[in-house]
Simulated scan of single mutants.
Amino acid sequence: MSVYLDNAASTALVPQARAAVTDAWRLPGNPMSLHGAGRQARRLLEESRETIARCVGARPSEVIFTSGGTEADNLAVKGIYRARRAADDRCRRIVISAVEHHAVLDPAQYLADREGAELVLLPVDAAGRVSVEALRHELSEHAGEVAVVSVMWANNEVGTVQPIAEIAALGADYGVPVHSDAISAVGHLPVDFAASGLSALSLAAHKFGGPTGAGALLLGRDVSVAPLLHGGGHERDVRSGTQDVAGAAGMAAALDHAVRSIDQHTAHLLGLRERLLRGLGELGGITVNSQPDGLPGIVHATFDHCEGDALLMLLDARGVECSTGSACTAGVASASHVLLAMGLDRAAARGSLRFSMGPDNTDADIEYLLSVLDEVLDRARAAGMSSRAAVL
């Protein structure tokens, strides 16, 4: 039996998106060309833009197509920082949460290392929730120096949902643009760009049943951004490059389906999550790190006296695919910066797994996971004790 429980990493292409991509691939035209084929491609591109805008409470003109979430995050962080600093050299501070995805954390660090930015990390509590008071203090002390604030809508590892409206309101009070990496939230939670008060928001198609390599940055019309790519002046002169019409069409179809089905999918995922949590509680020696009010499809847990990588491989051998929630650099496993920021020690952080469920998962999937987990834990703990004994 094969059970896929890594939907937070990537989801299967839904039939609606597959059909949209396939149909678009049949079109030969460049959407910037003036002939009939070009106009047909352009029409499909703009219809896709309108669908995406409708699904996330934005204007079509605010949807900037990108190659995915990482590019959208980089465009927001680097682009807004550079535009703000060009307008006022005092604007050098970049304020992000300590639990951001590396697609935000790394470009912010790049700007600090290469372009004189001052990086400020907002602390989080034990649930991974950002301190709004810390942001308030930062803005009250340095409002004239802050170029951009970036706080994710929902955390990709533990599923914690951030108080985005409150954060965006603070930014507006102090005249500072606020961006949110909403890549884990769009299609899974109600997201309304206009109502949020954000200046910019990133999304990626493969997180909600769309194709990989397709994403978007929602960008307010009054927000200045220095482009990362220069060329033909596509996408409001913010993101040059011939648009991927098929990717946009697939993303629009997947998002439309996800938004229309969100209540049904949420109820289904909450039922699966509750069954998994009950089963984990019966096993013992497990601490759940995800919150009841977080993303409905994520259960993140720490397993006492286990290495997450060992658990991952043992489960994979039994047909269960999940994630450790940790990063690997040069082949050496390291503890997740998200878990460390939440106050977990390195041993606990390295002994954690993320199970992320999608609409296609069933009760049978959860039952199978629980049926093999007890044995897997015994083997992982035995391996861990053997390793420690060998070291001693």
Rank of each mutant, 00 (worst) to 15 (best):
D222R: 12
A252K: 01
G250P: 07
T266G: 04
L270P: 05
R273P: 08
G250L: 07
A216G: 04
S261Y: 12
I262P: 03
A246M: 03
S224W: 04
V225Q: 05
S224C: 05
H206G: 02
V223A: 01
Q243M: 08
L219G: 01
L269D: 03
F208K: 00
A204R: 08
G210T: 02
V238M: 05
L203H: 04
L217A: 09
D222N: 11
S202G: 11
R260L: 11
R273H: 12
H265P: 07
G250R: 06
R239M: 07
A253Y: 05
F208Q: 00
I262F: 09
G220R: 13
A254Y: 00
A214F: 05
V223Q: 00
L219Q: 01
G215A: 03
G220N: 06
G210C: 06
A258N: 02
H265I: 15
G231F: 05
S202A: 15
V245A: 02
M251T: 01
Q264L: 15
T242H: 10
R260T: 10
V225M: 11
R221S: 13
G250K: 02
S240I: 08
D244R: 12
P211F: 07
L219M: 07
D244P: 01
R260K: 11
G233F: 10
G241K: 09
A248I: 04
A205T: 04
Q264M: 14
Q243S: 12
A248N: 08
R260N: 05
K207P: 09
D222C: 02
G213Y: 10
R221V: 12
D263H: 14
D237M: 07
D244H: 14
F208M: 06
S261R: 12
H234V: 15
V223R: 01
V238C: 02
E235W: 04
S240C: 08
S261T: 15
S240Y: 08
R275Y: 10
L203E: 02
G271R: 15
S224A: 14
A226Q: 13
G247P: 00
A226V: 14
L229A: 14
K207S: 04
L255K: 00
R260H: 07
D237S: 11
G213P: 04
H257M: 12
M251F: 03
V225L: 13
A205L: 07
L203V: 10
H257F: 15
G241Q: 06
R236Q: 13
H234A: 14
M251P: 03
A204K: 09
V259Q: 05
G232I: 07
L219E: 00
L217D: 00
V245I: 08
G213V: 11
L203W: 02
R236L: 09
S202Y: 02
S240E: 06
D256G: 12
